[in-house]
Design a protein around this nucleic acid. Sequence first.
DNA 1: CCTACCGATCGGTAGG
DNA 2: CCTACCGATCGGTAGG
Lengths: 197, 197
Amino acid sequence: MTRRSRADVVAAARVLFADQGFHGTSMRDLGKELGIRGSSLYSHVVSKDELLVDVVREAASRFQTLADEVNAMSGTAKQKLSRLVQGHLRILVEDPHQARTFLNEIRFLPEFEREEAVAMFDRYQETFREVIETGRLGHEFRSDLDVPLTANLILSLLNGTTRWFNSEGTLDTETLGDEIHQLLTGGLASVSKVDLT
Amino acid sequence: MTRRSRADVVAAARVLFADQGFHGTSMRDLGKELGIRGSSLYSHVVSKDELLVDVVREAASRFQTLADEVNAMSGTAKQKLSRLVQGHLRILVEDPHQARTFLNEIRFLPEFEREEAVAMFDRYQETFREVIETGRLGHEFRSDLDVPLTANLILSLLNGTTRWFNSEGTLDTETLGDEIHQLLTGGLASVSKVDLT
DNA sequence: CCTACCGATCGGTAGG
DNA sequence: CCTACCGATCGGTAGG
């Protein structure tokens, strides 16, 4: 194997921070994953914190990109919600370690970067709120919806999939997204909606 | 203050394991929370692991109790689901630190106790599956529902509330449960279901 | 990227 | 419940 780059170190951090937690992972653990000494990592990064910052930022950036796509898109609220659901799931599934580090270890960031990440995620969540509000005003969704609450519930549902969904299994990601979108728009009940529009 | 009991130590563990993580909490941190030395904790417990085991077991036990209640209950699938949703939320809200430690730190348990806890939670989840399956067969719910998937989605939604719900806020727990139950059974769509039964 | 090392902190024990 | 301490490990640095 050749010399490692900073990107290799970040790659190891994604995996170990996700599996063992930030505080459960030592620099020596990361080194072992790459076949080098823990102390050698400091030629690539100046601190352990920096690795967590990198992983969280790259995840945040993906969510930001999805939000931009949806904001630029035309279509009904349901269509936009579907795109948000599918896009969000794709991000979680494409790099589950990155996603889990983002979701679970964000609280261990240094204060400045933590606030930065939280603000970034809130801007992302704002896209959910806007789509829900549009659907509510346009009578696609219930007019009595609590919009911020609904956004929180949808994101909880999506993010929770990282705890059990395995993309190697029988269910593929897009089908999962369809199931979720169906549950969100129509619920569990058996009788299909009468569309009055 | 008088002498501390093992229960006091477990109480401190619930809070600090939830806020700082199991690996981010030292025995000295726990001691400080109680106003004693870290080493003094060993007159109450034999290891740090034991504290995590205690917190996880007490949470698991609460879920088990709820499952027993629902299994003993009569009513429609929707009513049972509502009871599961409300009961699950109440457990999360009554002791958020215990709940968050259970959800986030369970993976750091010693292998035997981890498998025990996972098995316990799967038995609990089985109650969700049974209720959903009953509703499906009785045409309360869609007949094409993927039952285990739906159980996972519902639990993801519920557990995710620990990340943002604050029972001190304007929204009380029961109303949150109603909103969730409404979302789950009817979805976001605006037109109310036509009940053919 | 390595060896050698730093002070600090870790979980835990002995003995009172 | 305390002091005093153990070996191991932590994040990180110096110097090559």
